[in-house]
Design a protein around this nucleic acid. Structure first.
Lengths: 216, 216, 216, 216
DNA sequence: CATGAATGAGCATTCATTCAT
DNA sequence: TATGAATGAATGCTCATTCAT
């Protein structure tokens, strides 16, 4: 009598069941994040209740706590997720070829574009005094700062190539960051102000900055 | 015999009482604004309750409603107050003499200085998204526009004097505003970041911007 | 030296001043009652705040407490005042001449008319469970009950004159009171119901009641 | 081999759990209504806070909002409930046989009996002025009208049978309603008054009314 | 006598969160 | 694992009332 393959089958079935469960769990997690992201952007973090998120992803309020510790954890997860994307974009630029100054310009453009694409995440991570409470804020901040380091790298390469009027990498990097931060913050937080077309404002700012730093 | 100054005294006493009351009332109003401003910055508008403000200025929750119609009105009052102060500084520069480009630079410096001198005011007024309805927003926005118009005036004068590489007054004004806004926002909201010395960062930013816009 | 008539003069002046003060005080008291009465009727007792009354009679909120102990005392004063009027009307009927049955009918008509003329006072005094709190309620109730006694007197006279099918004065009096109370309560508390014209409903009720009690 | 009834059992268990939950939920709903009804009668609608109701039925304030949209909805629910009960009694009489006048008398008796059996329901539903807006008011009023229409039907049948001195169905119906309403309102809201025995007062009122309307 | 600023308890309602099922 | 009823603290705001002036 050959041994029954039962345990094997069981194992496999068990594994399949487990895997399926895991998949379903991850799906619900994603549903929660998607619902929360949309609501946060549309109504603002404080105005979104767990109940609204639960309604938005078709589950019960209590269920959300099986996936996230609390409301802050949802926000933190969204920020992390998003800043990984930013990081990938910036990383790609840091590593690509071409004129360092041009690369710097493209980096700034990318940064601004990212912020305008994800305004709420941007504000939550870069636009709020840290003392608030947002537990996940620091974590996300760390992820966000890696992007700043990309920019500093780009600036350094420009300095090394002798393309700048400055040799203080830190000062220039911080100034450039400030300029880009300023544009996107205004565009995001002052939607009522009669700004010129967004892309053009970003480009003008980049243009002034690049012209202002490059060697003559 | 000189007539008794009694009626006069009576009058004066009454006036003094009234005046004293008025003064006390204004003092409490200021206390409320100060407490609210600090809390708004530290915890975010939505997270600050009327009770917290009341605790913060040592009065009862109901008392606040004797001075402000509602929470929005407090925010609006803070914004107005700020714009008036800023406006006075900017106005002074607009009217002074000297090279237009230099005046522009001094305007930017003044703006940054103002923000760093009154970080609470600045953040509450310029750094908060108008989440929800925010009645007083428009009113304050109008006041804010006047300061921006000062800067635009300065830019226009530079253009008229043929000192800029650009002739789009609006685009340049908004870009400059963005750059200065960015510097001060970062300095205020990210105190943990290893920024270079504040004044030097402001000056570097101004330097890049001025060099970036002036005609070659 | 004749004694100066000063004390006398003083006395008189003093009296005049006192009288004048008293008059002014009574005037304000009346103003408060007038404002309160109108507001109570228009908006309902609970919805009227002391502040609204103060606004309505052009004085400060605190001033009202110099004339009335609290809000309930205002209500009680209004009720007393009003029920004295009812009492006078009923008394007049009790004492007039004519057929006892006709007098009874006129009494009922007068009672209903009074209730419809002063709906809020009527409801407050007769239409509310006593346990509420309305301190002054009992007092006013006493005043109101005197009117019931008038009706009982009228009924008794009808019995004595052999005009009724009944000899139980109490039962008939209470039934008649109930009928009139029912008509006015419905008319007052159910303004949305499509009642026939008010006077006609009162007359029909009186007619049925009179026809229902008189001897055949 | 008979199939395992397992799925069936599972189903049943699940159903039982759901049913039990539902039952508990309905029980709390009833507790809320009972507490609210009593409080409304004792203190008046406006003076009853959600907290008092919550205290009265031993749950937290927020819990009430899981069962009712707001305070008005509680009042509306009480009214609906009452009208349905009353409606069933009245309907039974409308459809039974016998002399129309006698049916009318029994209808009135039934109405009064209902009110005295459920004084809280009655007062809240029929004895409260729709102070303010009172959303559910109309809905409840509609339900209430059905009971009144029963009485009107009975009156009409008397008229059709030539048993009344009147031919105005509406006026007679409203007068009879008023009389019965008056008796029960007095008995319920003025427990301190020395009324004759309740049943006798109701019967006397019915007697007067019936004698007052029937043709001679 | 009159004021009106201040109080603090109270309101209806919403919330993040817990937990028995 | 998921549910959803329940909680209790918090929200913005109003109120009757007090009291220094």
């Amino acid at each position: 009598m050959t041994p029954l393959p039962k345990p094997v089958t069981m194992n496999t079935v068990q594994e399949m069941v487990t895997a399926r469960r895991e998949r379903l769990k991850q799906e619900l997690r994603e549903d929660i994040l998607n619902a929360a992201r949309e609501l946060f952007v549309r109504e603002g973090y404080e105005s979104v209740s767990i109940r609204k998120i639960a309604d938005g992803c078709g589950c019960a309020p209590g269920t959300i706590y099986l996936h996230f510790e609390d409301k802050d954890a949802i926000l933190a997860a969204i920020c992390m997720e998003t800043f990984e994307k930013l990081d990938r974009r910036m990383e790609a630029i840091r590593n690509d070829q071409g004129d360092p100054l041009d690369r710097l310009r493209r980096g700034g453009r990318q940064y601004a574009q990212f912020a305008l694409d994800h305004p709420f995440h941007y504000i939550v991570t870069f636009g709020v005094a840290p003392s608030a409470k947002h537990k996940g804020g620091d974590e996300a901040m760390q992820a966000g700062l890696r992007s700043f380091e990309c920019m500093r790298d780009c600036v350094r390469k420009c300095v090394d190539a002798g393309q700048l009027r400055f040799d203080d990498v830190e000062a220039v990097s911080q100034s450039l960051w400030a300029a880009m931060h300023g544009v996107v913050m205004l565009l995001i937080t002052k939607p009522g102000f009669p700004f010129i077309e967004h892309t053009r404002l970003v480009e003008t700012t980049l243009d002034i900055a690049m012209e202002g730093i490059r060697v003559r």
